[in-house]
Design a binder for these strands. Sequence first.
DNA 1: CCGAAATTGTACCGAACGGTACAATGAGTC
DNA 2: GACTCATTGTACCGTTCGGTACAATTTCGG
Lengths: 189, 189
Amino acid sequence: MRRIAPDRDQLLGTVAEVFREHGYEGASLALIGGATGLGKGSLYHFFPGGKEEMARAVITHIDGWFADNVFAPLRDSGDPLAGIEQMLEATDSYFRSGRRVCLIGAFALDDSRDLFAGQIRDYFGRWVTHLAGALVRSGRRPDEASELAEEAVAAIQGALTLARAASDLDVLSRALRRSRMRLGLPAKI
Amino acid sequence: MRRIAPDRDQLLGTVAEVFREHGYEGASLALIGGATGLGKGSLYHFFPGGKEEMARAVITHIDGWFADNVFAPLRDSGDPLAGIEQMLEATDSYFRSGRRVCLIGAFALDDSRDLFAGQIRDYFGRWVTHLAGALVRSGRRPDEASELAEEAVAAIQGALTLARAASDLDVLSRALRRSRMRLGLPAKI
DNA sequence: CCGAAATTGTACCGAACGGTACAATGAGTC
DNA sequence: GACTCATTGTACCGTTCGGTACAATTTCGG
């Protein structure tokens, strides 16, 4: 388990919210300061590298959450299908709990994409790889597992885009339900 | 068929490229001027409403292209499956031809989303609706058709995000191949 | 209670932003 | 050639941007 000072944890969560809501360019220091209650002095004390370091820290923070709650179950669960189920549930609760867009997905399309290209590529790459690994352990052929994993992750990202466009989070729920089916999980109770 | 003065058509294409590459906020008038070779005088002559009108015109322009090349085949083709095939081919060629991201999808996640919310919602809404219509005419049950249509459009959007993140357009090709399968089309030659 | 270090508010910087004003051109028409 | 009217370049506006400097304050171990 990751060890983070609780206040820094919360700070990063708040900053993440601003980036999520406004994108990298749109998240001005004024907005970040307003949301966190911190002035520029404090902000630059905690993040000497300025806005770029803030974004990088936020991405790392999110990446860590996914490592613990999404990738780890896929990798470590004895029953791979149970791990996949955990992944889907973590995904659902994560994107439902107010944070309605994948910040990393948004950054991937943003003007800032080159700044964070490595972190973004790794995030999605690990998601697909871990899911494919679980599918292989559940008995799928490797090539089939790769396709299904890529399809599932893309379906989630696409559903988030459509959900945002339509202001309708049910799009995500339906996508997750379909993924459950495509990945060979029993229909949910 | 839509009738557009060819030079305005080309101008909108160039401006679209800038928005696609940099997002709404990131596309500064300096960049737009540089890409089009037009100074602010000309830009504000053609788009008195400024940047917002430029973006709106670009979205309308793209929307028109999709109406002609994607939605129309879905609606008008005698053989619904042939229409779907046309849609997938138009989609493939559109996103492959240099324009590697869905501008409207990017705007949906951008800070500018509220400005263009209506246009964005309509674009995706019509895509799903027309595809679902074709599926119904191909013999699917309406609820099944809706699910499949939403899945297909989301898969394309998600694939574009992943393709951008991985700098690998093959992600899109694979997604389209899977869509072909899911939608009941014969595997491509 | 003291001193060092962490934290903060405020004033300020140059640059870039979107937008405006307007005079100078351009092209076509009588 | 003169009269339009569309088109363009340029200088300029106020605002906001990310970032810096630094003094004042708080915190806290000794």
